[in-house]
Design a protein around this nucleic acid. Structure first.
Lengths: 213, 213
DNA sequence: ATCGCAAAAATCGTATACAATAATTGCCGG
DNA sequence: CCGGCAATTATTGTATACGATTTTTGCGAT
């Protein structure tokens, strides 16, 4: 859904209220549909719903941020290993395209889009590993990581990322499970180390502006 | 929700149709509420929704069954380790109560209830580990495991289970992370080994009967 | 008797209307 | 001038109504 993308691309920020009427107006759909979408997003941890108060973009706590990366540390290295065992040339090609897109987005200054693509790289690896169940979990974790990054990221440059992804791609191309597992583990540690896990409160702008701008 | 419990206790079986009107009648609520619940259950993999056809209790394929246990194998041993590091006497007491209830349910011939309690034992361990994110994943996996068991279980006796849970409880009581991790790993392997992962098609009885009986 | 097609019934998807709850505003008293 | 209470406004929760799609049923032809 487009609202999910807006969250992934940091066009709507944690804490922002997602009024049912307002979202419905923006997308030209009824509240029924909006409610469905919001509840689905709540299930993935992207929004929190407070009874009789409405839906808000989730603001992961520091503890939750750590939990997300701990869960990723349990799931992704092993998944990268399995992916390296199974990766075909077609898979490698798809991942290459992903990285290319990611670079282009960065070059065009679209940091939000680049972040979203960077996340889908991880999801694609789970798909290559042929683990749909784990893939769904990783998708959730990547989504929530995006919120964590919106809240706790220190640097503004995401250059380090692309290097790690390149190295992972190489390991998959060589069908080298050990390398893939280690690289993924290191990559996650790197990501976590670049977070500033202290309390901050993000600013909340206008929803309509963020979606239409 | 009560419908979720009915699935966990094998009172409604995989493949059974969950008509919105019928479920609404049984519980005395509107279709709106039923739809919310069904969509939530679909998100957890308990039911599958086919557009314009309705919701059905999910029938995990053999591949999906394997995936569920592979995911559990990635998450639960580490979680048991963490739980063993943190377990307090109160935690141990809660788990003991769980096992007692489980035994009583078995003694009373309520196999479905015993199965549900056996699942909540695993979830409780994640709670003790203080990992809410992973806890939510394990909850999903336990739910889906219940469906897998309904479809692929061979023996009718679940006695082996209680022994494994006892041993795990001991490891937690002794705050022995290594033992907890190994025991959990072995427990999951045992569970998987008792499944007959060949295609079967379960019989589907009447919904209203199953819920009200 | 069986297959195919058409009409009827049932069921789901979406929109809208009404009720319940929370947030806001304005007023009054201190 | 400030704080608290009441009425108003806004927003969500739930039910219901209508349209779309699918499934079933019944009839007729082969």
């Amino acid at each position: 859904m487009r609202l999910t993308e807006a969250v992934h691309e940091h066009r709507v920020l944690p804490g922002m209220k997602l009024s049912e009427d307002e979202v419905g107006d923006v997308f030209g759909v009824s509240r029924t549909i909006v409610r469905q979408a919001l509840r689905a997003m709540a299930h993935e941890g992207l929004v929190t719903i407070e009874r009789n108060r409405g839906a808000f973009v989730a603001k992961p706590s520091v503890k939750e941020a750590r939990e997300v990366f701990e869960a990723r540390a349990l799931l992704e290295p092993q998944t990268a290993r399995a992916a390296a065992e199974r990766a075909t040339p077609e898979d490698v090609q798809i991942l290459e395209a992903h990285i290319t897109e990611e670079h282009r987005a960065l070059a065009e200054g679209k940091a939000g889009l680049a972040l979203k693509l960077s996340g889908s790289f991880h999801i694609e690896i789970a798909r290559i590993a042929d683990q749909r169940t784990i893939e769904a979990f990783i998708q959730q974790l990547v989504s929530r990581s995006s919120l964590v990054i919106a809240l706790y990221w220190q640097r503004r440059n995401a250059l380090c990322e692309s290097h790690a992804h390149h190295a992972l791609l190489d390991a998959l191309r060589r069908n080298d499970p050990d390398a893939a597992e280690d690289l993924m583990k290191g990559h996650l540690v790197d990501l976590l180390s670049q977070l500033n896990l202290r309390e901050t409160q993000g600013s909340v702008a206008s929803l309509r502006e963020a979606l239409l701008g």
